[in-house]
Design a protein around this nucleic acid. Sequence first.
DNA 1: GGACGTATTAACGTATGCATTAACGGATGG
DNA 2: CCATCCGTTAATGCATACGTTAATACGTCC
Lengths: 229, 229
Amino acid sequence: MNAARALPAPPHATAAEAAHRRLKAMILDNAMPAHSQWLEAALALELGMSRTPVREAMMRLAQDGLVAVTPRHGMRVLPLAAADMREIYDVLESLEPKAAELLARRRPSADVLAPLHAACDAMEAALRAGDRQAWATADEDFHRSLLDACGNPRLAAMVMQVWDQSHRGRMVTLNLRPLPEASTAEHRAILLAIAAGDGDGARELFRLHRRRGGAELIALIERSGLAWL
Amino acid sequence: MNAARALPAPPHATAAEAAHRRLKAMILDNAMPAHSQWLEAALALELGMSRTPVREAMMRLAQDGLVAVTPRHGMRVLPLAAADMREIYDVLESLEPKAAELLARRRPSADVLAPLHAACDAMEAALRAGDRQAWATADEDFHRSLLDACGNPRLAAMVMQVWDQSHRGRMVTLNLRPLPEASTAEHRAILLAIAAGDGDGARELFRLHRRRGGAELIALIERSGLAWL
DNA sequence: GGACGTATTAACGTATGCATTAACGGATGG
DNA sequence: CCATCCGTTAATGCATACGTTAATACGTCC
């Protein structure tokens, strides 16, 4: 399920960058569980570098909203409670529909939409195969492709930040819920609205998509346990 | 007009924190103009500290979207073009109305709304006095108070980030536009909707407020100059 | 026996040192 | 006169050193 999918690729080969990438992957893959604490010196030893780049990586993780750094206790991996998921879905419910609207208004060419079509196809195939992990990957591809194409890098970066924050929550609930048939169909409908240049339609479809998905996810989390991953 | 209004106050007395606060204030007040470049060593000398905390501050400014750090040329203060303002207002148009909706749905008590009422009063007073700077301060107070009270710190932090990014743009246009009478009235209307617990109403009023204000601001910027601050 | 004060220590924030590397300028060749 | 190659230099990223401070443990006093 986890398998340390290497986050993107090394753009700049700096140690601080590598430390950030590796630590982020470990947190998202739950290799560093919530509430666990890690000192600069320990991580430096673990990663085979000095405290300086580790320190920089910790700062960036804090900015990412994944850890809290407290002066004497190193960084603490933040738990993800139902309240956090609620905050995150409020943001997603506001920003992602806007991204869909922006993309639709751009009257995107077919090749811009190709990754979105591919992601939809992959989601439908995964659904037929009953492969939840593949579905989650395709879902992620869909949302990332949409953000990349929407033409507003600031908005895209903000969405990706909270998207990453909620990653562990989505992964844990993935196998607790029924196969996401409705969600898959909604993606296709959103894509059709975008392709048709219907900005308002795409935005509202997306808003409903997020609202339903968020409510389901939060209900699921509240039903299973309280304090969280 | 500028007068280096000290950003909040020293929460932690760390040199890196101080460097970040001072540099950010200088950028927002245009003491470090767009496109200007600053090396670590030069800033360290200027701020009376070593390169280490300056480096950290530069990283944080980059995260704030205020500068770009390029390996051999230090940090470069980012210009703010019409395209940036468009991106920023897309984000504000999505997130701030949501914040208003959230606050309204909380059925806030009178003392929670007190800062908002005070800000509205101050805006109206500034309008009568024709004091644009005072109006801008009150406007900022209104928006900040709303975010503080909305109950979603993630959303609030995101708005404040782009709000800061657009600060220079708002300051420059402040004296180029007619007195913001419509805007002042809109704030009052939004506040009334919030006080009435009308989430949908508050959200839509705020969306229109941002859309109109953003369009005006961008038109003003495009009319005056192209590449920017 | 428990609470308070003190000593110890370890984690951190900052300063500094060092090797790397890319930008700049000059010299050389066409 | 212009382009290219090479040497110089300075800015950086990382490593390490150092002083400060807070958390822990111990001893003492009540």
